[in-house]
Design a binder for these strands. Structure first.
Length: 504
RNA sequence: GGUGACGUGACCGAGUGGCUAGGUAGAGGUCUGCAAAACCUCCUACAGCGGUUCGAAUCCGCUCGUCACCUCCA
């Protein structure tokens, strides 16, 4: 399986050639949504990018296991001990079971991701279903001396880990001293943590806390819930082994989330960095500022698909959104605006129109093919190769799409005058159309969204049928009737006019 | 304060020592009953100032500006 795919690895801070731990198997983990609210455009970037990545890996011949988790245990609203769970808060506000909230938003999330053309992950584990795995991991970390229990809660001992095992900050490139310098000390007093850098692996549940599980920690075993970063480590390990191939998420998860994941894995019996490649996608911005829940400058996917929103004057279909996201490289920030979206829509349609053309690119009967097609073939093959150069270079979908546009211009040129196809060999043309089709639909996952309304087209056809009858042009009448029958539709001539029905 | 990005033509957005990015918008043309699409041509930029180099948007330095992470965040 020789190919030159390189990926930027945050851990090494450079583009590394991709090589699976156990070829041809590839384990990919993407940090999924916390399901206490609806997903916005920013939340879609990771899933779309990783969808393309897994599609491409499969295209290259790998057997991929793609895991995208669902966080339904909830993160605390603040870092104070009394902080409330996001899930619990939403549940309380709506007088529902936390799991009901979770299910509601999981359903919505899946619906949105499917609309965006993201293939369902192979495993979609929920944090709440992996409490025992998380507890085991905590016990391992404690046994290794990198965690301590206080009042039924368990914290990861960052300074000790940093001194005895691995540099805490190796992923996000920070030193523990810098981090200490930047810590607010206002909370230090009443904190159970030994160091402000320590993070919770397990929290004892306060009486009001709704989401809770039996806890083995503390003197009088009570109830609690897992810490913010543990689930991913536990679930990645369970489904992808001690060392997965690729672990991803938004740039904002790099620290502390992913840093903590590495620490947890290194500190447990896993003893690895959890994943070989750490891949981070950049943010979506609005007027140059990150789109985020807390800033309130977000556009919900559902709203975006349907119609005008506060930031956008019109609706943009899921495929247009997908194209928009892929037209920028995943590590660049991308700014959303009406102008950008409209440009994306046109670009998307251009690509789709090209797709529809492929079948029609046939040298007309009786046209002589050129004796020497080598120059034109080489040019065509160069355009095809360029697509893959882009994809292989850190999944640069922007470059790949630019190359596709170059190819589609070529196709359009051929189509305008099919005899010009005589310049290229059948084989080269076949390669080009096949590559175009495959990359657009299979790798980039961009499919045609039918925009024409079938009913209206049918009405139009019936009006022509009616006209033909009136003109007694029975050839035409029969022709229309036969064509519709081919679609399983029968015309009903009524005294009052014309109607149709599905053939029974 | 610490760390890390980035500033590309009207807009979006690749590239990162010499070679056309691409899309959108705009202008002209071909085609065409009209129109649209398509194709061709044009509009050809790299924040500023220095430096390195035969050669810099690309490397180095400084200045200005913007953003991200360090707290939940995709």
């Amino acid at each position: 399986m020789q190919h030159p795919l390189s990926l930027y690895n945050t851990l090494t801070r450079r583009k590394d050639q991709f090589e699976p731990v156990n070829s041809p198997f590839v384990g990919v983990y993407l940090c999924g949504p916390t399901v206490y609210s609806e997903a916005h455009l920013g939340n879609a970037r990771g899933p779309v990018v990783f969808d393309v990545l897994t599609r491409y890996l499969r295209h290259l011949g790998y057997t991929v296991r793609y895991v995208r988790n669902v966080t339904d245990v909830g993160h605390l609203e603040s870092d104070a001990d009394e902080g409330e769970d996001k899930m619990a808060k939403a549940a309380r506000a709506q007088r529902q079971e936390p799991m009901q909230i979770a299910q509601h938003f999981v359903n919505l999330y899946r619906q949105n991701m499917l609309a965006l053309g993201c293939l369902p992950p192979d495993i979609e584990p929920q944090a709440s279903g992996h409490i025992t795995e998380q507890i085991s991991m905590i016990e391992e970390i404690m046994a290794n001396g990198f965690a301590y229990e206080v009042n039924g809660s368990v914290y990861f001992d960052v300074p000790r880990y940093n001194a005895e095992r691995e540099r805490y900050g190796k992923l996000s490139n920070r030193s523990i001293d810098d981090q200490l310098a930047g810590t607010r000390d206002t909370l230090a007093g009443q904190d159970e943590k030994r160091s402000p850098l320590d993070f919770a692996l397990w929290k004892k549940a306060s009486p009001e806390h709704i989401m809770r599980w039996p806890s083995p920690f503390g003197e009088a075993p009570g109830e609690g819930f897992p810490g913010w970063h543990l689930e991913c480590s536990a679930m990645s390990r369970k489904y992808l082994g001690n060392l997965s191939d690729i672990h991803g998420g938004g740039l904002d998860l790099m620290f502390p989330h992913h840093e903590c994941e590495i620490a947890q894995c290194q500190g447990s019996h896993t003893h690895t960095d959890e994943s070989r490649f750490w891949v981070h996608n950049n943010m979506i911005t609005v007027d140059g500022t990150k789109m985020s829940k807390s800033l309130g400058n977000f556009v919900l996917l559902g709203d975006m698909f349907k119609g005008p929103t506060a930031t956008l004057t019109q609706a943009y279909s899921p495929m247009v959104v997908r194209f928009f996201l892929l037209q920028a490289h995943y590590r660049s920030p991308v700014d959303v605006s009406d102008e950008a979206m409209q440009a994306a829509r046109k670009g998307y349609r251009k690509l789709m129109n090209g797709l529809r053309l492929l079948e029609k690119l046939r040298l007309p009967e009786g046209t002589e093919r050129a004796a020497d097609t080598s120059a034109a073939d080489a040019e065509l093959r160069k355009l095809v190769a360029d697509i893959f150069v882009g994809l292989n270079d850190d999944l640069n979908t922007a470059r790949a799409i630019a190359s596709l546009f170059n190819l589609v211009r070529k196709f359009n040129g051929f189509f305008a005058n099919l005899t010009t196809l005589s310049a290229v060999s059948e084989a080269a043309l076949e390669e080009a159309t096949e590559a175009y089709r495959t990359v657009v639909t299979q790798v980039l996952g961009l499919v045609d969204e039918p925009r024409a309304n079938a009913e209206q087209l049918l009405e139009l056809t019936l009006s022509f049928y009616q006209e033909a009858k009136t003109a007694k042009a029975y050839d035409k009448v029969d022709q229309i009737r036969a064509a519709l029958k081919g679609q399983g539709i029968v015309i009903k001539d009524l005294k009052t006019g014309v109607d149709w029905a599905y053939e029974e």
